[in-house]
């Protein structure tokens, strides 16, 4: 079996298993970058996993005033859900509670073409209590809702499209501190890339899960095979004795190319310091190929940037 290493860091011969999701993109603007941050932090809060949150969301990238419809600072936010119906409910609720409430904010469609459209201002306009105003410029309709600091401007609707959720890789390191440093480097490498988001806190997840539980009420539970504290009692452990901590990066993207680019950049950054930085191996999470149709084999993903391949 071929073995792959990057700076001495072993790249396991396995694959990340991802599944289809539905996504949309919003453009949020405000008077200052700080208020953009306030609005988007709220919008993307409690949106790490569809399992418990209903959706997965994060800022895709910051936007300059030249890039936004109203010439103010902004951010592109991507929100992933399991279906168009789910997304329709979640997005309008989140925009209503997190963007409309944020001082000086505005919300625009960041995805104009897609499979369907879901409401934004078209659902929120009734908050205007009859004083809402519709403006249609070109093909785009906007709503102006009177609020206490002036007007909340919100696009009527936004398109949704098919995306991919659950791209991932895991960093196995000799210490928690070194694992965290490698994960941070991976996050920093992925975040500038277009079309991909990291929905977990700081872009990193430490509580990876497996399907099922000893408790009937739970559909998922801690991934015991990657828990270093259970190594001695978990017969199927995947951790070598020198692994002290494991952190995972989960990627949602607009297509396979975006996920693959994100994984490639993240793994390369995580392994950049090599074993000297305490990173021992990179692996990925899958369910044997039975759950999702999108398989990202680490050796294929990293093939283009491989420093050396040893047979």
């Amino acid at each position: 079996m071929a073995e792959m290493q990057i700076n001495g860091v072993r790249i396991e011969d396995t694959f990340a298993e991802a599944f289809p999701m539905t996504y949309t993109r919003l453009v949020i603007t405000a008077d200052t970058p700080a208020w953009v941050e306030a609005a988007t932090s709220s919008l993307t809060g409690f949106a790490t996993s569809v399992i418990g949150c209903g959706c997965e969301a994060a800022v895709e990238r910051r936007l300059t005033p030249e890039e936004t419809p109203d010439s103010r600072p902004g951010a592109a936010v991507m929100i992933f859900g399991m279906s168009t119906g789910d997304l329709a409910k979640l997005v309008v609720n989140r925009v209503g509670q997190c963007i409309m409430t944020s001082p000086g904010s505005a919300c625009y469609a960041g995805l104009l073409q897609g499979t369907k459209r879901i409401p934004l201002g078209g659902g929120l306009r009734y908050f205007g209590d009859g004083h809402q105003i519709s403006k249609k410029f070109g093909d785009r309709r906007f709503w102006r809702l009177p609020v206490m600091d002036g007007e909340f401007v919100c696009e009527d609707s936004v398109a949704v499209a098919k995306g991919i959720g659950g791209g991932n890789f895991l960093i196995l390191a000799a210490s928690h501190r070194q694992c965290l440093a490698a994960a941070e480097a991976a996050v920093a490498a992925i975040r500038p890339l277009p079309g991909v988001i990291l929905p977990f806190p700081g872009g990193v997840v430490r509580s990876g899960s497996k399907v099922g539980s000893k408790y009937k009420a739970l559909i998922a539970s801690t991934n015991t095979r990657f828990c270093p504290t259970l190594r001695a009692v978990e017969p199927e452990t995947l951790l070598a004795p020198n692994v002290e901590a494991v952190l995972e990066l989960v990627l949602d993207g607009i297509d396979e190319a975006a996920i693959r680019a994100g994984m490639r950049a993240g793994i390369a950054a995580a392994a950049a310091g090599g074993t000297a930085a305490g990173v021992l191996a990179i692996t990925a999470g899958n369910y044997g190929g039975k759950l999702g149709p999108h398989h990202f084999h680490l050796h294929e993903v990293m093939g283009e940037v491989m420093g050396k391949v040893m047979e």
Binding site: D70, K135, E151
Partner: peptide, 10 residues
């Protein structure tokens, strides 16, 4: 008026 930015873009 924020929406006037949108008009300007249009």
């Amino acid at each position: 008026w924020l929406f006037l930015h949108l008009l300007r873009r249009a």
